[in-house]
C-alpha cells in the first residue's frame, strides 16, 4: 500500500480524487445504514430499541482499534524506512481514531444508562477503550509539544509502537481484573450470538465508518502536505 504512495506528488494526484470519492461512499453507506439500523432491523428481544445504539457504538469500537493498528503500521514504516508519507499518515489518522474512541465511550455510556442502570460501568471493554482514548491523547499531545516536526514524527512513532505493545496487555489485565471484581450477573453486550438480521446494518455502518476514516485521513494528509510546502516556500523566501 505504501509503495504506491511512495512519492508525495503521486500521492497528491491520487488523493485529490480518492478523498472525495471515499467521502461520497461514506455518505451513501451512512444514508443506507442509519435508516436500516433504526427502522428496518429487529429490536433486541431483551433491550428493545435501545440496542440500536449498538450500530453506532460497535463500529466505533472496532475502528478505533483498527485506526491504532494502522498508525502502528505507519509508525513502523516511518522508523525503519524514514518515509515522510508514513509520518504524515500516522499523524493524520490519530485524531480520527481519537474521535472514534470518544464516540464509542459516549455511546457506551448512553447505552449503559438504561441497560445497566449506570452511566459508567468499569467493565473490561469500557476500561480498555478508555485507556486507548488516553493513549491517543498522549500521542497527539506529544506531536503538538515537540517543535521540530521531523523529530516529533519519529518520537511519536516510537511512542505509538510502545503503545501498541501496551494496549493488548492492558486488555488482558483489565479482563483479569474485571473477573476479579465483578459478579458475573452483568450482561455482556456482545456476549450472545448476534441476530443475523442485525448483521446487515451493522456491517453497513462498519463500512461507512471505514470509508469516513479513509476520507478524513486523506484530507488531513493533504492539508498537512500543503502546509509543509507553504512553510518550505516561506523558508526558502526568507533565506534567499
Amino acid at each position: 500500500m505504501f509503495s504506491a504512495f511512495a512519492n508525495p506528488a503521486r500521492f497528491m494526484a491520487f488523493s485529490a480524487g480518492a478523498a472525495p470519492a471515499l467521502f461520497v461512499g461514506a455518505l451513501i453507506l451512512f444514508a443506507t445504514g442509519i435508516p436500516w439500523a433504526l427502522f428496518y432491523s429487529p429490536a433486541d428481544y431483551q433491550m428493545g430499541d435501545t440496542a440500536r445504539i449498538m450500530y453506532v457504538h460497535v463500529p466505533a469500537a472496532w475502528w478505533s482499534m483498527g485506526v491504532y493498528a494502522f498508525m502502528t503500521g505507519a509508525s513502523f514504516v516511518s522508523l525503519v524506512w524514514r518515509h515522510v508519507l508514513a509520518d504524515v499518515a500516522a499523524r493524520a489518522a490519530a485524531p480520527v481514531g481519537a474521535v472514534f474512541a470518544a464516540i464509542c465511550l459516549i455511546t457506551g455510556s448512553l447505552w449503559g444508562a438504561p441497560t445497566w442502570g449506570t452511566w459508567w460501568e468499569w467493565d473490561g471493554r469500557m476500561t480498555s477503550m478508555l485507556v486507548l482514548f488516553i493513549t491517543y491523547l498522549g500521542y497527539l499531545a506529544l506531536w503538538a509539544a515537540v517543535e521540530d516536526e521531523e523529530k516529533a514524527a519519529r518520537l511519536a512513532a516510537i511512542l505509538c509502537l510502545v503503545g501498541a505493545i501496551n494496549l493488548p496487555i492492558v486488555k488482558f489485565s483489565v479482563d483479569w481484573w474485571s473477573t476479579l471484581h465483578q459478579p458475573a450477573s452483568i450482561m455482556r453486550s456482545g456476549g450472545s450470538a448476534i441476530h443475523p438480521e442485525m448483521l446487515g446494518p451493522l456491517l453497513t455502518m462498519a463500512g461507512a465508518y471505514l470509508l469516513l476514516f479513509g476520507a478524513l485521513t486523506l484530507m488531513n494528509m493533504r492539508s498537512a502536505i500543503h502546509r509543509r510546502r507553504v512553510e518550505n516556500a516561506r523558508l526558502r523566501g526568507a533565506q534567499a
Binding site: 485507556v131 488516553i134 498522549g138 499531545a141 509539544a145 489485565s173 483489565v174 483479569w176
Partner: peptide
Amino acid sequence: VLIALIVLPLFAPPIIFGAS
C-alpha cells in the same frame, strides 16, 4: 504534564496486578 499523560496508560497493567 505531558509525561504523565503519556506514561499513565503504560502504568495501568502493573497498577492492576500490584493493587491486587
